[in-house]
Design a protein around this nucleic acid. Sequence first.
RNA 1: GCCCGGGUGGCGGAAUCGGCAGACGCAGCAGACUUAAAAUCUGCUUCCCUUGUCGGGAGUACGGGUUCGAGUCCCGUCCCGGGCACCA
Length: 862
Amino acid sequence: MTKHGAYDPAAIEPKWQRYWLENKTFRAEDLDPLRPKLYVLDMFPYPSGAGLHVGHPEGYTATDIYCRYKRMRGFNVLHPMGWDAFGLPAEQYAVETGTHPRITTDRNIENFRRQIRSFGFSYDWDREVNTTDPRYYRWTQWIFLQLYKKGLAYLAEVPVNWCPALGTVLANEEVVDGRSVRGNHPVMRRPMKQWMLKITAYAERLLQDLDDLDWPEGIKEMQRNWIGKSTGAEVDFAVQDRDEAITVYTTRPDTLFGATYMVLAPEHPLVDALTLPEHRAAIAAYREEAARKSDLDRTDLATDKTGVFTGRFAVNPVNDERIPIWVSDYVLMGYGTGAIMAVPAHDTRDFEFATKFGIEVRCILEPDRAAAAAERLRVEDVLAGKACWPGEGRLIRSANDRGLNINGLPVEAAKKRTTEWLEQNGLGRFSVNYKLRDWLFSRQRYWGEPFPVAYMEDGEVRILDESELPVLLPEVEDFRPTGTGESPLAKAGEWLDYVDPKTGKRGRRETHTMPQWAGSCWYYLRYIDPQNDRRAWDPRKEAYWMPVDLYVGGAEHAVLHLLYARFWHKVLYDLGLVSTKEPFRRLVNQGMILGISYRDTRGVPVPNDKVEFRDDKPVHCETGEELEEFPAKMSKSLKNVVNPDEVIAQYGADSFRLYEMFMGPLRAVKPWQTRGVEGVSRFLKRVWRMIIGPDGRVAPEVRSCEMTPEQKRVLHATIKKVTDDTESLDFNTAISQMMIFVNEFSRATPRSREAMETFVLLLAPFAPHICEEIWERLGHDRSLAREAWPEYDESALKLDQVEVLIQVNGKPKARIQLPANMKPADMERAALADGDVRAAIGGRAIRKVIPVPGRLVNIVVK
RNA sequence: GCCCGGGUGGCGGAAUCGGCAGACGCAGCAGACUUAAAAUCUGCUUCCCUUGUCGGGAGUACGGGUUCGAGUCCCGUCCCGGGCACCA
């Protein structure tokens, strides 16, 4: 075979990638009134120094196939790509090497762009965005101004992760188990003035509007849990010998009669005032210890409860009983009121605490017998205060002489009744709480968006005017931390000096920068109008393109990115700047691609460069120990990372794309096996040879001719399956069907030219380079990107005769050919007339016959 | 601990509404072509019993149930993956 005539991806792929780029084949047309619009979005990548890994192209290939398919179906498709390029790695690199993050970032973007283009994705490259471009972040700063004007941005003294050894503040993701990821130094909590965004003001809407989104249920549930809405009551407890009351939040007002103590968080403002003199030393020591612990320490060591008694008592408002007030760090200042009433009999945490400190456990709820049995708990133990019952049941010992009696009521009714009583008596009120906290929006970092803010000499916090944007990142000499906890921007010299253009008043610029999430909160809006220097986007274009119809990306962004973006979008909606309540109508998470790894008999993973094969069995190359293969997250340490560049160099982009889609369902976790690429590569070679002869021209077997009925059936079955499966993103089964097509046609002579052309169009979204090349060689002078998608003929799918299975007592006994549309009664007759069937029945009495049209007949005998 | 996913051949996976389990691909085996290899093509390939054909049996993590019929529905158990985790 001549080189000329063989399938050569290395030659045809760059050719078509250049063609698409030069002809702007995939340009999206703003405001096209003739075609329906479709906005398909990929989560844009952080351009890391390591380059693309095989996980990125999975989602990108899926959306690319979908977009190419939809264009052929007449949609005006917006499909853009960009770079989420602010972030820590480039800055760390700058600290270590002195290379400006700008240089690293540009170089990495260059590499990412090259890699992404090498897959032949159909992006509209005229819409590329880069979050670190001042023409982009100018508008990120502008949105911050809008948030501020709506009262949603404020300064607050908030603890940060301060690492004394590194002399810097760390992001949460840089802290694990209370120590720095780099260097493993201890990290403390230290208060610092920070910008906060009031996402809590949108908690209810962020929760409610989830219901209408076409998102995976699991992701919606994670967001619901993150928002963490609960309903209950605030209850005021009088304090003995003091005027202040302590207000607690509880979801279980029904258990008030079982409250035997109270707990204040160590940071609670009333602690000092309430503590009796002889307890002061112990309380002070405890509070100091708690302050030193990070949040993680406080929550992680969940097992052992600690606490100190204040010496003070409060009064239970339902029964006027005296109960002790304790301080313990199992109560968090940030949730509810920072104080709780403790009901050890019906709350496991309180039970643990009470047991440890010898506090009374008073059961006031008789457990539901069945539920208790299911939990393997004895009701008697609960009633005696020896066991804790947080579940359902009926209230007991819960009445006072002031009109509250909830005895006998189930939990829900008792909650309602108690809350009403509290409200009527001015002792409490119905209350809603959310776990969601306001968003800490400051980072003490260089490589991020500067805030459009200055602190004036007269103490005013000045929010800059829109006309002063963008606030450019200044040049600095070195990127090392200041050692004071301030951002490297604190060393930016003249840049720090701000002069009000109108009044000439002086001030110092904000040195904090925005977190990486900022740029990704609105990039989908900038794609709509990426070159606009007069506004963030044109509202007419926004109204045309929004919402995003399909958003594909990894589940690791389930909560933060997607929640933050939804929050900003809702604010923009309230400001009348966007036309939809939600940004992303439909969301799909691609499953992670795992690498093949090995572990020894004790289960310890062995890096791949320590593995060799003897007799096809993996063994440790040093010890010779036999190893077991297992799929594991790709990582440098396991040496199981697959580099897409190498795969493309060996097999081509079309094979890579096809393999990633053929591996399994898009949403499932799947292990990468390079051998599998060979399978789809073989398939593409067969496709090539099915249509192109050894001389590189259309093979002589391919010509206009009648198809056999079977060929016709396979062709139309393929159109149908590929259409349906592409629509539903089930690419793996679409590819299977195309393989079946090739198995059927590649051995046939002659091969219908019409069938071949149809097939090329079906395969084109999946393997666009090879299909464009074949299409051209078939004599077309234009890209197939806008060819009409093939339609199938329902009548060609129908079979006249079908094989019907005859079962006797559910066991297959015979297969007979019957007309496809045969009536059940006739099928029954035909089945009973069959010789093999009669033999299988063997004269036994027939009790029942179940004919299933077109499929089977089951004969039930005695 | 709680909340989501998921357990099907040697491997990745398929199976419409409860109707022939294992499509398609990988790996393997046998054969064809070839001086030879690669490439390509053809056939076989869930397991067990049976020399083999014929034939029979078992089988979708495990144990029950519903049904003429269960990978699919219901109850319980185990295992794997992900998320949350003192949120009162």
